[in-house]
Design a protein around this nucleic acid. Structure first.
Lengths: 220, 220
DNA sequence: CCACATTTTTGAACATGTTCAGAAAGCTGG
DNA sequence: CCAGCTTTCTGAACATGTTCAAAAATGTGG
């Protein structure tokens, strides 16, 4: 029965996440986690190869929750601006309990070698899930997004979301009010900006931007 | 005579920077720095309160060099796209020797508590210097940038530069070719995009973007 | 030149992430 | 039920960033 093993793993993860939330990243030492969970330090390492992997656990959990909450918030909202707001606000919502932890999280995540790195391999599943949210936000919107943008837009929005998350980490205003403001302001603006793609002079710029994005993405 | 003291400080800094460049951040242990410099570990800490402060030293040095090289590269270039390219390319140039170190540097820098954090207090001077480069790039360009953009543009470009630096860190292509490509593609595009500010329908969007930037920046 | 104060230097000690050899517990085919 | 194998678990040991009490070197007023 794998249940016992899984139980220990969960116990360690749960204790770790709770402590990250309650007392922050640095004070949550591996020894403290082990003690609180009633296992040895080595045992914690048997399930998680590093402290970073515990952070990864948190990342996955938060992303999962975001997917659920965002899908709910998208119901009945059809305009792109509203849908963007929904996805971004719920994103901030699920991260909220970890705000004080955010800086350490990002410092961990940004390391290419880290399992938590959102661009890295270990996070492929979580990233795909997150991307799917934005894809759904774009595809389900009406009036529809210009066809030529539809393919790349979700990925660009996800990238922008990473930027918003970064902003949020630094946002010391009460309840991260400024981030909320940024979202509320930027979402309609972006939606409006995209609708300009029709204007002849502007359309060319859009094409070039897309071309650049694609060429840089595919290396070559 | 303060010379002896300053000499030790410089020695430690020089050895540290050299080792960062040669063998990377993690392998450059405080003990190794001390040994290589022929001082005790405690002595290194007498001059630098933390390993992070040695990274800060590197940051300042690189920024200083960027200011010099960029000013040179700006001479005789008048169009905004060209000036942007000059500033960005020289930025990458001065960072180049530290590419493998980049990820660790950014992981360090991104922590709000870190002295290296580009938004933080300890980096005010370095940030101002860097901002000044972009201000000069914008102000010295002809045809001139639309007046209403001129004030905020340097700061936004600096922000974009942080983004480019981030991209560069992750860029594993040979000689960071992709980053160069991004710069070459994005600079003219941005310049052209800005020139659209004249078109009535687009102008409004620009105003709103500026309004948002200002309102978020000033908190409230 | 001396006594005292200040600056600089030292190295041992500490906390923390991580590793590892081996113990304990659980499982499996006979 | 047992011998051997695998999984799980333990705690000591290690490397590294950091701290600190005390020593050494330097500077200073008399």
């Amino acid at each position: 029965m794998a249940a016992k093993s899984e139980q220990t793993r969960q116990l360690v993860a749960d204790v770790a996440l709770m402590m990250f939330r309650e007392i922050g990243f640095e004070k949550t030492t591996m020894r403290a986690i082990a003690q609180e969970a009633g296992v040895s330090v080595g045992n914690a390492y048997y399930y998680f190869a590093s402290k970073d992997e515990l952070v990864q656990e948190l990342y996955v959990q938060v992303q999962d929750e975001h997917a659920v909450v965002a899908a709910q918030a998208l119901e009945g909202v059809h305009d792109l601006a509203g849908r963007l707001k929904a996805v971004l606000h719920t994103g901030i919502d699920v991260m909220a309990p970890y705000h004080q932890f955010g800086a350490d999280f990002i410092a961990t995540a940004i390391r290419p070698s880290s399992p938590v790195n959102p661009f890295g391999e270990a996070s492929t599943a979580a990233r795909e899930a997150s991307l799917a949210i934005f894809r759904s936000a774009v595809e389900g919107s009406s009036p529809a997004v210009a066809k030529k943008l539809r393919g790349d837009l979700p990925e660009l929005l996800w990238l922008a979301y990473m930027g918003v998350a970064l902003f949020w980490v630094y946002d010391r205003s009460e309840g991260q009010r400024r981030t909320r403001k940024l979202i509320d302001g930027a979402a309609p603006l972006l939606a409006r900006g995209l609708s300009l793609a029709k204007i002849p002079g502007v359309s060319k710029v859009f094409d070039d931007v897309l071309g650049l994005v694609r060429s840089v993405k595919e290396d070559s």
